[in-house]
Design a protein around this nucleic acid. Sequence first.
DNA 1: AGCACGCCGACT
DNA 2: GTCGGCGTGCTC
Length: 716
Amino acid sequence: MTILRVALDVPLPRTFDYRVERATPADVGRRVVVPFGPRKLAGIVVEVCESSEVPPERLRAAHALLDDLAPLARDWLALARFTAEYYQRPLGEVIHAALPPRLRRPEPLRLGPTAYAITQAGRAAIATLPSRSLARRAALELAAAGTVPADSITAAVARDLLARGWMEPCPAPPRTPAFIAPHALTSAQAAAVEAIRAALGTYRACLLLGITGSGKTEVYLHVAAAALARGQQALVLVPEINLTPRLAEEFAARFPGARIVTLTSAVPDTERARAWLAVQRGEADIVLGTRLAVFAPLPAPGIVIVDEEHDASFKQQDGVRYSARDLAVFRAHAAGVPVVLGSATPSLETYQHALTGRYTLLELPRRAREGAALPAMRLVDLRTDPADDGVCASLAAAVRARLERGEQSLLFLNRRGYAPVLVCGACAWTAGCPRCSAHLVVHLGERALRCHHCGHAQPVPRACPTCGNVDLVPFGRGTQRLEASVAARFPDARVMRIDSDSTRNRGTWEAMAASIRAGEAQILIGTQILAKGHDFPNLTLVGVLNADAALVAPDYRAPERLFAQLMQVSGRAGRADAPGEVLIQTRYPEHPLYQALVRHDFRGFAQRLLEEREQAGFPPYVYEASLRAEARQMADAIAFLQRACAGAPPLDAAVTMFDPVPLTLARHNAWERAQVLLQAGSRRALQTFLREWSDMLYGAKPGAVRWHLDVDPLEF
DNA sequence: AGCACGCCGACT
DNA sequence: GTCGGCGTGCTC
C-alpha cells in the first residue's frame, strides 16, 4: 500500500497519512486534497512511503493529487521544515503560511496563460479590423511584434481574440536582462560590490553598514546584476510595504528586459498566485518584497539581500512568528549563496556577528554624492530653552530661517492623534480602552477617542464618567495638536501633517510625497512614516520633539530602536546640495545615546550597548524564547503558565526559566496576556528544551487559554 | 483551527 | 415541543 504523508494547515504538531492508489517520490511537494474529519482540505505531500504507524482501518484515501502547481522543490520544503522546527510550529502551518492564499484552498488553481502569441489568422485580421476596435487592434499589433504578457491586456480582449483564433497561448518569452550603471561607484561601494561578487556561488553573510545616502541601494543593484549574469535570481527583502513600489521602479529602470516580481500582502490574491508561480518557473529575475517574500520559490537564487535588516517588521508577530531576516540567512546558507544585510544601524545581533568575523563587515562611511555632507546634529537643552507648545525657541528660530530661505522643515513627533490621554481636571480619571490596558488617544478631527492597539473608537465624552465634571483636558501632544499649534505660530506657512491617519487612503501618500517635493508644504509634521524611503531635496531641517520618552521605556531594546529611528529621520535632512541640520529637543543632552548620535557614531554606540548587554545577560549574549498565554482572566493565564512550568522537562544548566509575568501591554483586545521568559547560553540547549516542552504543551488541554511560543521574541 | 456532538434555556 | 448556547473532543 502506498501512503502519502501530508502536511495540513491545522495547529497539530504532526503530519497525516492517507492511502493513495499510486504515488512515487516525485510526488513529494505536490498539492493534495484530502478528507479531514468532516472537512476537505488542501495539503502538501511531504513524504511518500509504504507503511504507516496509523492502523490501516483509520487511514482514509486521499481525494486527489493536484497538478496546478509543480511540486514544491526539496530546498523549499527544507526551508519550511527548518522554520517549523526552529519556531516550534507544525510543518503544515508553516507551509501554508508560506504559500500564497490561493494555494491554501482545496480548489484547483485555474490561471490563464501567462502570454499570448499571434496566429496567421490574427496577422491577416489586423488589416480588416474596424477602426473602432482599438483595444483588439492594440493587442494584435503588440502580439505581431512579439508576445503579449497576459497582464498587459484585459481578460475580455484576450477571450475574444482567443475565440476568434487570432491569438494563442504561448510560454512566457525568454528574457535578456541587461543592467544599466549610469555612474561610477565610489571606492567604498566598489569595494563592497567586489567583496560580495567574489563570494557568489558560496555562502557568505555580509553586513553592509552604510549611513543614509551612502548608496547601499547601488550596491544591491550591482550585486543583483552579478547574480543575474550567472543565470541566477536575486531575492530582495525590504521592511515596509510602502517601499516596494519605489524600489521595484528603481530596479525596473536599471534592469531593462528583466522580470521583476513584487511579493507583498498588498498584491491581490490572484496576482500573487500568478507571481508566485512565475517565480517558481524561473520566470522572475528579481523578487522583491516584504518578509513573506523570504518564502518565494526561487529555483536558483544567486543572492539574498535584506535592506534595513534591523527593522522589527521582519519579525512576524502572529501565527508562525518567524524572522524573515534570520530565515534569509538560513536560506542563503542552504543555497550556498551570499546574503547582504544592509543598514545604517544594524541590529546588535548582526553587528556582533560582524565584529567576531562570522559576518563580513563592509562599510560605506560617506555619503555617495560628491560634497553631500552629513547633517549637523545639535542637542537643544529643554531645561534652558523650554518648549512652548512643544517647540523650543531655538527650533522655532531654525524653522523661521528655513521659511525665509524657502527651504523645508520637518518636525518629527512619533505620536499620532491630538493628545495621547484625556484627563478629568477634577478627579484625575483618564480615558482607558475597554479592551486594552492602554489610554485612548484623542482624535479631535473625528471627535473620537481611539485605541491605537485594538482600533476601538468611541465619541469624546462630554463629562467625566466618574465625577460628572465637564472639564476634560486633552493631556500631552500628538501630531494633530502640533499641527494646530505650529499653524498658529507660523500663520503664513503651509503646514502639512504626514502620519498614518492623514495618509489613510492608499495612493495619497505617493501624492503627498510628490506635492511635498513640488514645494507645496513648508513645514512638515510627521511620524515614523516620514522617516523612511522618500527623499525631499529641499528639506534642510529636522526637529525631533519628544525623543526622551523612549529613553525611559522598560524594553531593553528601546535605545537601539530610538537610535535607529533618529538616524533614519536625520537622514531626511540635507540630501541635495543644501546642508542639513538636525535639532533634537531633550532634557538629557549629556545622555550617551545622544552624544553618540551627534557624532554619527553607530559603532561607538553599539559597542557600549553590547557591553551593557553582556553585563546584564541579554541578547546577543543569550538566546531567548517565551511562552505566552492569553485568557479572559489574568489569573487563568498565569495559572496556565505556572502549570506549564511545573510540568516542564528538566532544565538544562544552560537554560534559565523566569516566573510568569503579565506582558507590558497586559490586556489586548480583551485578552489578558502573560508570559514566561527563557534565556539560554546555548541555542542548541534552548532548542532541545523547547522541542520537548512544546510536545508536552500540545499534549495538554489548554482549557480557555490560548498559548504560543515565541522564539527570539522582540515584544515583551 | 474548524466542526460535530451534546446536553440545558426562551421562542414559533 | 424545537432553535441554539458554547463546553469538550477529534481530526490520518
